[in-house]
């Protein structure tokens, strides 16, 4: 639990790991899947979680932790008709913070974050946030959400054919700001 004031990025900046200023600069090509074939959200978690584990960002427990968390607290978002999901789970399963992107061949059903039980959204882009310490990464999470709130970016991501293309879509959006 944290209380009052919540965060003060200025005061902690010097002592914490230096994070990239822009999302696209921090994206690791090895953590981006395009044309990802998955029938269920669990399939997506196995694939993306598998990458995060293989590349040393997360512990072996990460995939099951994602599955369990999503069941209890879903992360599907409907951004004006385009579905995106931002699965994440406890820091104890994360070694180093990272964001992994999966562009799905065919949409997969997610439950809506904050929605009623059974409220679902068809998701084509899944951005998994492996986060060690949310307070340290607040600016990044906010920046990521701001990008994903733009449904034209989501539409572009939906048809991205390569990790390089995914990164350049993020880059174009961030450079346009």
């Amino acid at each position: 639990m944290k209380s009052s004031g919540v965060t003060n990025p200025e005061s902690t900046e010097t002592e914490k790991e230096v994070e990239p200023h822009l999302i696209w600069e921090g994206l690791d090509k090895k953590l981006i899947l395009t044309g990802c074939a998955a029938d269920t959200k669990e399939d997506v978690f196995r694939k993306v979680g598998g990458l995060l584990i293989r590349e040393g960002y997360c512990r072996g427990s990460y995939i099951q932790a994602l599955i369990d968390r999503e069941k209890q607290y879903p992360t599907g978002l409907d951004i004006k008709g385009v579905g995106v999901a931002i699965p994440h789970t406890d820091a104890s399963h994360v070694i180093r913070s990272a964001m992994a992107v999966a562009v799905l061949n065919n949409p997969v059903t997610f439950e809506l974050m904050g929605g009623e039980e059974g409220e679902t959204v068809a998701v084509s882009v899944v951005v998994t946030m492996a986060i060690r310490n949310a307070a340290e990464h607040l600016d990044q999470v906010k920046a990521l959400l701001k990008i994903l709130q733009d449904n034209s970016v989501l539409r572009e991501l939906t048809s991205a054919k390569s990790p390089e293309e995914v990164i350049s879509i993020f880059r174009r959006k961030e450079e346009a700001v």
Binding site: M1, K2, G5, V6, T7, R69, Q72, Y73, I86, H88, T89, D90, A91, M113, M129, I131, A134, A135, L138, V141, K142, L145
Partner: peptide, 17 residues
């Protein structure tokens, strides 16, 4: 509050603050 007090509630708490 959110499921894990990790990501989304951190953003929301910052915005409320």
């Amino acid at each position: 509050a959110c499921g894990g007090a990790v990501a989304t509630s951190t953003v929301a708490a910052n915005k409320v603050a």
